[in-house]
Amino acid sequence: MEKILSIAIPTLNRAHYLKFTLDSFVAQIEPYKEEVELAVCSNACEDNTFEVVKEYMEKYSFIRFIDCDVRLPLGDNFKRTVTFSKGKYLILWGDDDIPAPFLIGYLINNIKKNPDIEFYYFNRLVGYEDGCPIKSLTVYENHYRQTSVFYKDSSSFITDNFWGATFMSAVLFSRAVWERGLNFDTSSHYGFEFMGILYYGNKGKGIMYECFPLCIQRKVAKRAWGTDWPKYALLGLPNMSKDLEREGLFDDGLNVWRMRYNKFVLYCYILMSAATDKKKYKPYCKQFAAFQTSTVRKFLAYAIIYCMPGWVYNVSRKILFSLKG
């Protein structure tokens, strides 16, 4: 029987978090095991990921695992994970994120009820590290208008949800959308190649936003892609905005990114992160500055990366997570 839905998990050295995520999925997939699979793709993991997943595979026939021995960049690894999975619809699920207990049933029902909709995005709760007190969880989008909001075109959706929809665990899409989107050049969308693929592949079609939180985004202090974050945020996002605007998928995309998603405090914080690896990011200063419109912002791209000690960011991040946890 064809799988309707794949929960496709790309993972890299996160066995501890992955185990918790698998525990959260298996009970709710079991009633739908003929229609749903859980596909885990190891990006050349060096920890005990294989042993952890093997334990689950021995109990649950709907879990599949591929242990890749070649480590790929984030975007290419996502493509490999999609290729490995078999579902007609997919979610690229973060290995540290937690589904709502009713997520699978809710998504299967929506897929069957709305066969013409191939792209969904849903709200979420956000927590930090392990053991985050329930009372400290926050709703990502706290304006509850109705159960679902249907966007007839991508531009209005992207304007409202550009930053939020880059969280891959909250995006459900059809394989047909993905395959159509592979024709789009996303090579400069560093870290966000998957979103460029989906927006292009869904061109001319609507997007459904589910207002009710359907998962918990678990923000952890150590991320496998953490050292690449400045490149993703300060180059990948504006490059994607520019390219989507060129394709008619995002009205005034670059300016929307600058005004709504390139806030000054966040910009400085990202540059502080880049300053922890000066050798890596000094060559990027000119490119970072090119997307900034003011002289002050252009200057800061050089000043912070060249001059700020890396420990400043590390200390500030520890303080942030201690306050949020």
Rank of each mutant, 00 (worst) to 15 (best):
R317E: 11
D153M: 02
D67N: 15
F194Q: 06
D153W: 01
W178G: 01
A289S: 12
I111S: 01
Y32E: 05
L38N: 02
I270K: 04
L271C: 03
A176Q: 15
W163S: 11
G164P: 06
Y144C: 04
M57Q: 14
V312Y: 07
F150I: 10
E129C: 02
E55I: 03
K113C: 11
N48M: 06
A44S: 12
Y140V: 00
L125K: 09
S273T: 02
M240F: 12
V315D: 12
F167G: 02
K54T: 08
R317I: 12
Y32D: 02
T21N: 01
K219D: 14
K79H: 13
L125S: 01
F65L: 13
S174D: 03
S155D: 00
Y313N: 04
M168P: 05
D153Y: 01
E210N: 10
L198F: 05
K205V: 07
P115S: 09
E35L: 13
V177C: 11
K222G: 08
L300P: 01
N255P: 03
K135P: 02
Y56E: 02
I9C: 04
D95H: 03
S6I: 06
P101Q: 07
V82E: 10
D277I: 01
F192W: 11
T295F: 15
P101A: 09
P73T: 05
G206T: 00
N255T: 11
K203C: 02
F299Y: 10
K203T: 04
P238E: 09
N109S: 14
K54D: 11
Y89C: 00
Y267K: 13
F102W: 11
H16I: 15
D130H: 10
A303I: 08
E35C: 06
V265C: 11
E129F: 05
Y190F: 14
L92S: 09
Y144L: 10
E30G: 13
Y121K: 02
M259V: 02
L38W: 04
N13R: 05
T81Q: 07
C268K: 07
Q28G: 08
A233D: 09
K112I: 07
R124P: 06
L300F: 08
L92P: 06
L22G: 03
P31C: 05
M168A: 13
P115H: 05
E55S: 12
E34I: 00
A27W: 03
V296R: 13
I7M: 08
L234S: 10
F50Y: 15
Y121S: 10
L92H: 10
I117C: 13
